[in-house]
Design a protein around this nucleic acid. Structure first.
Length: 211
DNA sequence: TATGCGATATTCT
DNA sequence: GAATATCGCATAG
């Protein structure tokens, strides 16, 4: 029986199946809810990173808090791609964040991936994040982008077929899903467009926002 | 655990 | 010049 690193990896690797484009609901709110429990996979030369999506926010058509509000600009182009494409942007001088475009071609809307539960590649994430605290690796949109090496080079990629980053099925089905107002915005503040797995420690924000 | 604040770069006014 | 879909550190309780 052969042993060694490769064998260990095979023993521990999760079986993650790609979501097909037809699996993704072509509607922003439906997609935001659907993605809870699903998997985000990042392929890197060193190996594979995977995380379970535990928190999302919807930025639907006509939402004044959404980046698509006010029309298409070069930097926001990817939000107007057909649903299932990555929209990556940089903000606050320090953080990248990733959305999934969520409507038909030419219509701007997206779902922000806000938090993951690490599944594979924790050691690599620790190096990327420069911390060994498991709870700090992927809790929050900026942190998960850093852990997964997500930057502008991934902007516009199709998340059902890309070799670099893609969406996978749930390795563990989602528990009860909570709804709340969104975090860090100043407009449309009363909309219940944030979705999260209740009680999951990897959900961002203050404690009461994961109950 | 909660709250406050400064840092930082890109985009838009 | 202002605003920003945040983070990390400091401080208080």
């Amino acid at each position: 029986m052969p042993t060694g690193p490769k064998q260990n990896r095979l023993l521990t690797a999760l079986r993650i199946k790609r979501l097909r484009r037809s699996d993704l609901p072509p509607d922003t709110l439906a997609l935001a809810r659907y993605l809870i429990g699903k998997t985000l996979v990042r392929e890197l030369p060193h190996g594979r990173l995977a995380g379970r999506i535990v928190e999302t926010e919807a930025y639907p058509v006509g939402d004044a808090a959404g980046h698509a509000f006010g029309g298409k600009t070069p930097s926001r182009h990817s939000l107007f791609l057909p649903h299932g494409h990555a929209y990556v942007y940089f903000t606050y001088g320090s953080s990248f964040m990733m959305n999934v475009s969520s409507e038909e071609p030419g219509v701007g809307a997206g779902v922000l991936i806000r938090a993951l539960e690490p599944l594979e590649g924790v050691k690599f994430m620790e190096r990327s994040r420069r911390t060994r605290r498991l709870l700090d690796l992927t809790r929050g949109p900026g942190r998960l982008a850093q852990a997964f090496r997500i930057d502008k080079r991934l902007d516009g990629l199709p998340l059902w077929s890309s070799e670099k980053i893609w969406l996978g099925n749930a390795v563990r089905s989602a528990g009860p899903v909570g709804e709340s107002v969104r975090i860090g915005i100043n407009r449309e503040v009363d909309r219940l467009y944030r979705f999260y797995e209740r009680g999951n420690l990897f959900v961002s924000g203050p404690k009461k926002m994961r109950e």
